[in-house]
Design a protein around this nucleic acid. Structure first.
Length: 544
RNA sequence: GCGCCCGUAGCUCAGGGGAUAGAGCGUCCGCCUCCGGAGCGGAAGGUCGCAGGUUCAAAUCCUGCCGGGCGCGCCA
């Protein structure tokens, strides 16, 4: 569905193209159409003339002048006037009629406003969190959970089919260490030096009958089971639900195991060779710095071998796109995984690895260690106990995934009441209250009423402009894999609504057409706020 | 040494070729006859790490430095 802004953009591009008919040059850069920063610069401005100047060999301001005339013709009553400014910008002043019609488009789109824009819907797998089940989820895990889930929501809203997946590292030395640590605790001993020191290990030991005399591998399995259940419960509480929990162990079971099977396949393709007693994958043929070992000379598979098999499994499942959300400590892994993916025959662009930067938890002015082994970390559950799901999700999603964030627990506690999320929710609840006051009959009437009438107030125009920006913001958020843009947008929209509420009486405004218009505008705002919050996994309450 | 991310207001961070660089929190000064004060208005606060370069135009792109985080295993 074409949005009002998309239509305006298309009109500008058409007008620009009409100025250069037959010059034979390529299309060149698309002109910008952005909201003007100042009222005196109009509603939107475009740099089209600046871009055309070198092509046409004329002064940009002259071109802007002609562009303005062309636009006046195409937009008719929608355009109040166009002004040439600065080096050759064209500032567009749109009429109230244009605004009213634009709001009409927003309302027509209804709940789905801003969505379903993907030109080609894809089947997408998003793998995230995937924290080792050797301890509870930490605050950092929370960031991954919030990010991955919100990204999935965005992709779904765009029109894709998304599966959320958690890769369970329930195999290997870390898991074994958990087993050993449990047994040590059960026997009243200290865990091994490189084992897990956290209090939860002792709890596990107490929970498992006869732990002192059990085999570490068995204890590991039981411990992982309990931890996974806890992780699942925490994620559930955080409103994150996975479609698939993929067990690494599965890749090592049976004979031949999936791991072995897959590199037998790779070997027949010539991507695998033996050297120094080890089995190597020729990742260097696909852009990696060096080849990587799949099976050590000791006969054991590397972690990487399991990951290759895991990705082969994903590839066989036939997704159009596979996204892995990884921690910053795995960025060295990106290239080799991409290389392996291509060796497996995956499309070069189909695997996407997103690196999340760290969360530093600050407590009492000091950076808290987040070492899972030492058991010295802040759990996601603790964070949720202290600030709640909405505040935590909003806080963690406000920052771009590629910037390290400092989470000051004391500040978070203090500011949980000042968290911007409540401001946004408050605006939503306030609109619910306005609707209740007006009565749903009048609201329904307002949505059906023709949107004409007198001059629009500046706050009304500003709010409509904000609403019109939503589809572009969402699209940008999807393209850049940046849910934080949605958080920023939601806050801005709530602010614009609040300014409108301050300046414009809604219920009881005279004449009736004005009330009706403002009710409709309020409904559009409420829906858009609700959608923004939903994309972040945050609730949109009717009252608070 | 090499690679990735970051350096923007007191703090936490947006902005990633366009005009006078923004938000939240904090600070200061005002505002409750009015649809929800979890609010509103105003103010102070910036050499966008530094230096070059590209461009009509650079916080944004390129190069080099400085500072911080994280990687660079036949570990996971």
């Amino acid at each position: 569905m074409s949005t009002p802004l998309a239509q305006l953009r298309a009109t500008v591009e058409r007008a620009a193209a009409s100025l250069r008919a037959g010059d034979g040059a390529g299309p060149g850069a698309a002109p910008t159409l952005e909201r003007s920063k100042k009222a005196e610069f109009g509603d939107y401005s475009t740099n089209a003339a600046l871009l055309l100047a070198p092509v046409l060999g004329e002064p940009p301001r002259d071109i802007a002048e002609r562009l303005g005339a062309a636009l006046a013709e195409q937009l008719g009553a929608g355009l109040e006037r166009a002004e040439v400014a600065g080096p050759g910008f064209l500032n567009l002043f749109l009429s109230d009629a244009w605004y009213r019609e634009a709001l009409g488009h927003v309302l027509e789109a209804g709940e789905e406003y801003g969505g379903s824009f993907a030109p080609r819907p894809e089947r997408v797998n998003v793998e995230f969190v995937s924290a080792n089940p050797t301890g509870p989820l930490t605050a950092a895990g929370g960031r991954h959970a919030a990010y991955g889930d919100s990204l999935a929501r965005l992709l779904e809203f765009a029109g894709h089919r998304v599966e959320r997946e958690y890769y369970v590292n329930d195999h290997g030395s870390q898991v074994r260490k958990l087993g050993e640590s449990i047994r040590a605790r059960a026997r009243g001993e200290e865990p091994p030096a490189d084992g897990y020191q956290g209090d939860y290990v002792a709890e596990l030991a107490a929970q498992i009958p006869g732990a002192a005399d059990r085999d570490p591998d068995e204890l590991a399995r039981l411990g992982v089971e309990v931890m996974l259940e806890r992780i699942r419960a925490t994620l559930e509480r955080f409103r994150v639900r996975f479609d698939t929990w993929f067990s690494e162990r599965r890749l090592h079971e049976a004979d031949p195991s999936p791991v072995e099977e897959h590199y037998a396949e790779l070997e027949s393709d010539g991507h695998v060779y033996r050297s120094e007693g080890a089995v190597w994958l020729r990742t260097s043929a696909f852009g990696d710095d060096k080849d990587r070992v799949l099976r050590r000379s000791t006969g054991e598979h590397t972690y990487f071998a399991a990951d290759v098999a895991y990705h082969e499994d994903k590839r066989e499942r036939g997704y159009d796109r596979v996204i892995d959300v990884l921690g910053a400590d795995h960025h060295g892994y990106v290239r080799r995984m991409q290389a392996a993916w291509e060796a497996l025959g995956g499309g070069p662009g189909a695997l996407e690895l997103i690196i999340m930067q760290f969360v530093n938890v600050i407590e009492r002015g000091e950076r808290a260690s987040m070492s899972k082994r030492r058991g010295d970390f802040v759990t996601l559950d603790e964070l949720l106990d202290q600030i709640g799901v909405d505040a935590a999700r909003f806080f963690l999603l406000q920052r771009s995934h590629d910037t390290t964030v400092d989470l000051d627990l004391d500040l978070a506690r203090e500011q949980s009441a000042e968290n911007p999320v409540y401001y946004v929710q408050y605006a939503h609840a306030r609109i619910a209250s306005i609707r209740a006051k007006a009565g749903e009959e009048r609201v329904a009437g307002a949505l059906a009423a023709p949107r004409d009438g007198g001059r629009l107030e500046p706050a009304e125009r500003a709010l409509i402009l904000e609403l019109l920006a939503f589809p572009g913001e969402v699209e940008e958020a999807v393209e850049r894999r940046g849910p934080h843009r949605v958080a920023a947008y939601a806050l801005g929209l709530a602010q614009q609504f609040t300014a409108f509420y301050r300046d414009c009486r809604v219920v009881g405004a005279e004449p009736e057409a004005v009330e009706s218009f403002r009710l409709a505008l309020s409904v559009a705002s409420q829906r858009t706020i609700a959608r923004g919050l939903d994309l972040l996994g945050v609730e949109a309450p009717e009252s608070m």
